[in-house]
Write a protein that binds this DNA or RNA. Structure first.
Lengths: 170, 170
DNA sequence: GATGATATGTTATACTATAACGTCGTCAAG
DNA sequence: CTTGACGACGTTATAGTATAACATATCATC
């Protein structure tokens, strides 16, 4: 029964959800985490984080740069990339290799192995934290004597809203 | 028992293996497949395929371009990218998104969902065809109503030969 | 050999990311 | 207070990856 939304809440946000809350939550959480760690969440980094959280679609570095120029007219690529590097190190955002784009981390409190469902229709991406997937990868790698450092799992497809109705209930 | 090489043969090639055989097999197989499909494996495409198969390390497009200039002095980026596109369409090579690089497909005869183990030590990559991994992804996506079109699973780590001995048998 | 489709040549450019070096501010040791 | 070390940021230049657009050549078929 693929259509049953499952026990967990959908990682896809409803189109009309209150996104300001998403942003605020992300910024607050980031501030707390950085404080706790002694990491400096500067104004610049905070702005870049907010821009990454503009929506639930992964954003390219140069799109962030364009937006950032509203407040920092002289910003250049290194400005953005350095902030992105910091945010990735702190686990506050993820980089999607298949898109060369960045998105906010759904659960920055704890390190985790995540997977991404990327909708080819609307461009939104959902972050999963599915132990079964990570474990399947680890188990096979282990069998082959391969020591896993990092998993990149990015799945392209169509989210529930972007699937054709015919496709949903044939 | 992580070190037991498992029932299946290792997807990692021994350092001293006869790589000419790998190349020949790949080229022969490609020729057969293209013939069967009415696809034109031109000399240029064949050369690019051979260059991708130079080793078991994924190769960047511009590295291929440099090598290609031995026989095609005027080759330009589109020359290479068009050949790569063709080879990917035919399932003869894969693109590794996390590396922006390309490698020969281990089993071009049949379409399949593959995963890649990429060694950060020696640069070699091994292609897996592990149904358990693909299935774990599909199952979760299905639960969420997400229609999977393509899976990108790329695992960075260290192959058996590049792991420190201490790491292998603690 | 004329025709249409496919493949390749050629030039230019877009997009993504980093190197290298300089300036400024903060903070702790002297 | 000053000095020095460090981290963040500014600035310029460049590396690396990929595609657009249009011209020319090659091939299969009629």
């Amino acid at each position: 029964m693929p259509r049953a939304p499952s026990k967990a809440p959908s990682p896809f946000r409803a189109s009309g959800h209150d996104h300001e809350t998403c942003i605020d939550r992300a910024l607050d959480c980031a501030a707390q985490l950085c404080q706790r760690r002694g990491a400096r969440l500067t104004e610049l980094r905070r702005e870049v984080l907010a821009l990454v959280w503009r929506g639930h679609e992964p954003v390219g570095a140069y799109a962030i740069l364009d937006a950032l120029r509203g407040t920092h007219p002289t910003a250049a690529p290194p400005t953005v990339y350095r902030a992105l590097d910091f945010l990735i190190e702190q686990g506050l955002i993820h980089r999607l290799a298949s898109l060369n784009a960045y998105m906010g981390c759904a659960r920055p409190e704890a390190p985790h192995v995540s997977q991404f469902l990327i909708c080819a229709g609307c461009g939104t991406a959902a972050e999963l934290d599915e132990p079964a997937i990570a474990a399947a990868v680890l188990r096979r790698a282990d069998q082959l004597g391969f020591a896993v450092e990092q998993q990149t799992v990015e799945v392209r497809g169509f989210c529930p809203r972007c699937r054709e109705p015919a496709e949903k209930s044939p």
